[in-house]
Structure formats: structure tokens, C-alpha cells
Amino acid sequence: MRRWYLISIPYIWLVVFFLVPFLIVLKISFSQTAMAIPPYIPVLDLSRGIDGLKDFFSHLSFDNYRFIFSDSLYINAYISSVKIAAIATFLTLLVAYPVAYGMARAPKEWQPTLVMLVILPFWTSFLIRVYAWIGILKKEGLLNLLLMNLGLISEPLTIMNTTTAVYIGIVYSYLPFMILPLYASLEKINPSLLEAAADLGSPPIRSFWQVTFPLSLPGIIAGCFLVFIPAVGEFVIPDLLGGSETLMIGKTLWTEFFSNRDWPVSSAVAVILLLVLVIPIVLFQRSQQTQREAGA
């Protein structure tokens, strides 16, 4: 009985703060816009009893979903979000792998410090760190200043308000989420495996592809999911760093909700986003599960 109490706490938390809000969003996505407070109908009116309930359900419909799928804007936003997230995830992997590799190969007594340095940025607000990139990337920003003073370019580069800036922002912001699982899997690799590979006639680069890389796959998979999943729905980075060309579903959702005040459509957009992300989330859970089984 006591155990049940203990387990029930996180479940109650999830039900109250995740499941209930989600059901509310789901309900709103089946409603219609109205000039009212709240800005949609139907609103459940239990004072009218069974009739009220019947009336309530008869007003629910899939109209919003039909609308979303008929308008290429939304579909393009989804595709573009997934594409940007995928490319950004790949770029993050390219940056993170050498860092994690270097950390795993660093002297043992240095490794805790290096891990600390990787998570150090979390001590500053995410929003402030993304804002800081504006100062670096804008036309008269630090980056352009540096490159021009070095004589590498004569005209300032236009990075700010482009998709490139969004990539930079995502890679920067999500780097620790990629580095940490990569480091964890690279650090576990017994150095004698590489010695054995060398002893059996494999030069270092071949040993990397034959031994290190395959053994770090669990870390690569975990890191990619940890970056990809939140990056798809990312709003702050494309909003602050991206321009009008950068189409991402997070921004679309925001516009729908705050500019158009169309709660039902934006709710439907959110529900579809969740469905889109359920696939990689399930895949991620699967890979974690098989890894645990292989490790046991």
C-alpha cells in the first residue's frame, strides 16, 4: 500500500499536468472559433443536464483538421520543421562527436570538469543565450566585425534572420543534449578494444569505423532523438534568429494562437505535431529498451 502511494505521486502529476491539459487541447481542436471568452464553442454547460451534453458533442467536428490538411501552408510548415530539425540534428552530431570523443579520451581526472563545462550554459537562461546570438550574428555584429577586421570579407555577411541562423541557434542550444549521451557511450568503450584492433592489423582510422563508431551508435541514436524531438517544435530560436523564409510549425502555431486568436485551429496544429513526434518518441523508447536488454 505504501509503495502504491509513492508510485502514484508521479502518475498524479502526469495526469494533472499533462493528460488533463492535453485532453483540453484535444477538445478545443474539435471546436469552432467564436467571438467570445473563451474564443470557441461549444462550451460544456452541465446545468442543462443530458441535453447540454448531447448539444456539446454534436458541435464537435473534424473541421479544423480538414482545414489544416487542405491548406498547404500547414503541411509545408510541418515538412519544413522536420527537415530543419533533421539537418540541425545532423549538424549537431558533426559538432558534438569530436567534442565527446575528446572528452572520453581526456585524462580521467579531467573528465568530470569537462562534463561540468558542457552543462555550464544551462546556468544561464536559454532565452538570454539565444538573444546573445543576435548580437553575434547581426550585420554589425561581433562575427562580421571579426571577419572584416581579419580581412576575410569586405561586405558583412547576412546571417541574421536566415535559416542558417536558425541552424546555428539549434546546434548551439542543443549541443549538450548530443554531447552527453555520446560521451557516455564513448567513455564506456574499453581502450583495449582499439589495441586489439590495432594488434589484428587495423590502422587507427579503420579501427574508428570498425570499432569506435559502431559501439557509439547507442549514444548517437539517443543524442539525435534528444535533439530532433524538441527541435521540430522549436519556437524561440526560429522566432528570434530566423526570418520570414524560415517556416517552422512552432511559429505557425504561435501566430495562429496569438495573432489570429484561432484557438481551435492552433490546438489542432498542436495535436498533429504531437502525433508527428510520437513516431520518433516510440522509436527512441524502443532503442533504449533494446539497449538495456543488450546491456543486461
Binding site: S192, L193, E195, A196, V211
Partner: peptide, 8 residues
Amino acid sequence: FQSYALFP
């Protein structure tokens, strides 16, 4: 190798 160093 002492630890065998088999590729897992």
C-alpha cells in the same frame, strides 16, 4: 589480451 578485448 588479459581482458580478452572481444568486440562486443
